[in-house]
Design a protein around this nucleic acid. Sequence first.
DNA 1: CATGAATGAGATTTCATTCAT
DNA 2: AATGAATGAAATCTCATTCAT
Lengths: 191, 191, 191, 191
Amino acid sequence: MAHKRDREATRAKLLECSRLRFARDGYDGTSVRDVAGDVGVDPALVFRYFGSKSGLFTEAMAGSSEPVILPDGPVEELPAKLMRQLVFEDWAEYAGEHPLIAMLRSAGHEDMKDRLRQQVCEGYLDVLSDLAEGNEDKNLRTELFAAWLLGIGILRTAVGTPTLAKATEDDLRPHLATVAEALFGREVPVD
Amino acid sequence: MAHKRDREATRAKLLECSRLRFARDGYDGTSVRDVAGDVGVDPALVFRYFGSKSGLFTEAMAGSSEPVILPDGPVEELPAKLMRQLVFEDWAEYAGEHPLIAMLRSAGHEDMKDRLRQQVCEGYLDVLSDLAEGNEDKNLRTELFAAWLLGIGILRTAVGTPTLAKATEDDLRPHLATVAEALFGREVPVD
Amino acid sequence: MAHKRDREATRAKLLECSRLRFARDGYDGTSVRDVAGDVGVDPALVFRYFGSKSGLFTEAMAGSSEPVILPDGPVEELPAKLMRQLVFEDWAEYAGEHPLIAMLRSAGHEDMKDRLRQQVCEGYLDVLSDLAEGNEDKNLRTELFAAWLLGIGILRTAVGTPTLAKATEDDLRPHLATVAEALFGREVPVD
Amino acid sequence: MAHKRDREATRAKLLECSRLRFARDGYDGTSVRDVAGDVGVDPALVFRYFGSKSGLFTEAMAGSSEPVILPDGPVEELPAKLMRQLVFEDWAEYAGEHPLIAMLRSAGHEDMKDRLRQQVCEGYLDVLSDLAEGNEDKNLRTELFAAWLLGIGILRTAVGTPTLAKATEDDLRPHLATVAEALFGREVPVD
DNA sequence: CATGAATGAGATTTCATTCAT
DNA sequence: AATGAATGAAATCTCATTCAT
């Protein structure tokens, strides 16, 4: 029982540390040895637990599909919530960026592109599309809004564009309102 | 046939092939061996010509700062032009994506982040900011619009979101109009 | 047989074989592959254990600072002892030469020159200087005598001068007596 | 005729520059490219002129057998002359050291050991042996004296022992007298 | 089961050298 | 004869991964 506990604790620690590394340094920039070193265990354990480096990555990034959104509350509040989450929340475990943006750093590998798409679709587009209800090109509008949020996040943290890098939530609020209204054809609260 | 031993031709071919590889597989996913193999020369030649793998990358990606649109037309036409370039133009040499999006794939390394920022700022923001003239938060608006274009490009090609991946220029035109107007506070032609 | 996977044994064997190679072929003339091949292990192991080729060299040659004679006998006997050690002892692990002479073969690199100087000073000059006690230019005399021993060793093994290469200890004994007396101003036993 | 002259001039310059490099950095530490670069010609010329890197080395170091000694004057003056040459003369072309000591830096390669031996024997031992005339072990005495000079040179420049590195000719003069007398059994002038 | 010794493939890079022109 | 483009072999080193214990 104590053993079981240790095993699970080690697994969890490996996942946690690897998330940070993968997010900060990308898949290629992270070595199994580094991750194992962070936790203080032998690299071979990683292979026992996760089969391969890729397996570790999959499981580490899979954990990030959960925290996406809490779909309670009215749909109108979604844009503001999502922006806060994608752009302003500090994902400490993911080197300060939202997991999706962190994953982009490893998008060279084909299978990670798939994972990415799946998470974007299930985690974001599905939730957002309710907002576009009533428009003919509902899905396109939804994706265009998601693209905007994603682009902002990328310019802010991955590229480090001067103004956005320092912008606060208050700075963006009014523009969120106008763009959301432009795309969804309805007013959204942004406070 | 006339040029078997032609330094410039070989150099150019190396640059061309490396662009494709770097864009498709990222910096880490591309090996000098691969690039040299594509051209059919010995890997050592790459080092002779470019000093290092990093030198090759720099020079390969430097070519991508030129093709930015020069503002010889009226500023109002810029949004449409930029969208065509960023989202719809087929950059064959860069694996079908715009070079900037391709470069994101290698943004794990700190110095490439710098290069990226510089290109975004000088190549795009500087040109676009004229459009936001007259607004108090001119720079923020400019960056927000650029973020949108970039996000669209990423969802389209890097993530492969279902609707955007298949969208045509005509599909996006009306939305471009409303969003640009929302951000810049002026009408822009999108034809 | 009992030890197939024995870290310390493998380490020791690597050190032993590398000593021989470094001594015989010099630093540049020795490749990590060669050393690993001698022991029958993968070259990567060398880097795991010693970090780098230079680390291997350092550790291999560090073993050579110990075997210097400790002055437990009377100082008068030092010259004879040192000559035996420097000139006539067969350092099998170091390709038959005294480690110091072997190290000279790698003295092209600046840091190895430093290591060499330190070993000569601490290992030999410090011990010998007692013999020159009472003379005004004590240190110079000490170094001049050390120079002689070193020179003999070099001509014998590194250059292979005809007479010295075949000389026995008995052949040199009388000359050791006269030169030591000339430099130190006192009689030294040479039997 | 002009061509001939250029060719010879380039050859000479290559030899000169390579001497310096070989002496300073050793055989392995010197690249054909470096040498050619010093002179400002294409590396391929080295191969046209000298066949190989080794050929260049041979010819470069062969030039050093000439300046050895001027066997005019009485034999008694030889020790002082040789010491001046081996220990105190500044061989600018050979990085400040006597060619023989410089060559030791490349003594890892077997064929250089041979070259070294030949030069020591023909250039030094043959000349010196006259001084030992009349002693039974004439050759041994000669080699022992040569060993001393060589050892002094090595400690001075290659090892950098504290006192010898700064010693002047005057400092060594008296010891030269006593040691030479001890070995050759006759007085030698040292002024 | 877990540990750590060991492996093998592959990456970047350097260098002496040869082949066309 | 000379230039410079091109080559091939080898070196150091890293990493994911497997094999004994």
